[in-house]
Simulated scan of single mutants.
Amino acid sequence: MKNPSDQRIKEILHTKKRIAVVGLSNNPDRTSYMVSKAMQDAGYTIIPINPNVDTVLGEKSYASISDLDQEVDMVNIFRRSEFLPELAKETVQAGIPIFWSQLGVVSEEAYSFLQENHVETIMDRCIKVEHAKFK
């Protein structure tokens, strides 16, 4: 597994502003909430993907990637690594061009599938940390 260059990650963060966040909790103490709130405050549109909540951060939540009825630039994953292969399939089916998984979330199977389907893939990186690096 190989992430894009820092320069490419910077380009992604400067141009891709609509992020579907899989596993976004409505609990302000959870990392997914804190990271997504920081990204929202930085000007990104956050679209929650969580079947257990109706809204998060003032945005309507969707049950799954497949249920999205709006375009997004990327998915940001806050689920355990074993869920990545299925989420990768949903991402490809939805035509979303960028797949990003948070720190510690990695799957070689998902990575290979995403590469075969020409989805730009970033794994094991915190989007908030990367964003702070490239402000």
Rank of each mutant, 00 (worst) to 15 (best):
T31M: 01
I19V: 15
V53A: 09
A42G: 12
E109Y: 09
D67T: 14
H118F: 07
P4Y: 10
K60W: 09
K135G: 08
I96H: 15
F134Q: 06
Y62N: 11
D6R: 09
I47H: 07
D54H: 10
D6A: 13
A94E: 11
Y44N: 02
L24N: 04
S61P: 03
K89C: 00
T45W: 00
D29W: 00
R125Y: 05
A132N: 15
N27Y: 02
I19E: 02
L68Q: 08
L103H: 09
M123I: 11
T121L: 13
M74T: 05
I65N: 01
D73H: 11
L84G: 07
F83Y: 14
A132D: 15
D41C: 11
I9G: 07
E109C: 06
A132M: 10
E90A: 06
M34G: 01
N3A: 12
V35R: 02
I49L: 00
V92W: 03
K37L: 10
T15P: 01
S101V: 01
Y33D: 09
S61M: 13
E11Q: 15
V21P: 00
R125W: 03
L57A: 11
Y33K: 10
N26Y: 03
S25Q: 08
D29A: 14
Q93Y: 05
E59V: 08
M34Y: 00
F99D: 14
E86L: 05
M74F: 06
G95V: 15
F99H: 13
S112N: 11
M34D: 01
M34F: 04
N117I: 06
D73F: 07
K60H: 14
M1T: 07
A88G: 13
G95N: 11
K128Q: 11
L13S: 14
I98G: 06
I122M: 07
T55I: 12
E130F: 08
G104K: 04
I96A: 12
F78K: 09
A110I: 07
K128M: 07
T121G: 05
T15V: 04
V75N: 13
D29N: 13
H14T: 10
K37W: 01
H118V: 08
E82I: 15
K128I: 00
G43L: 14
A94Y: 04
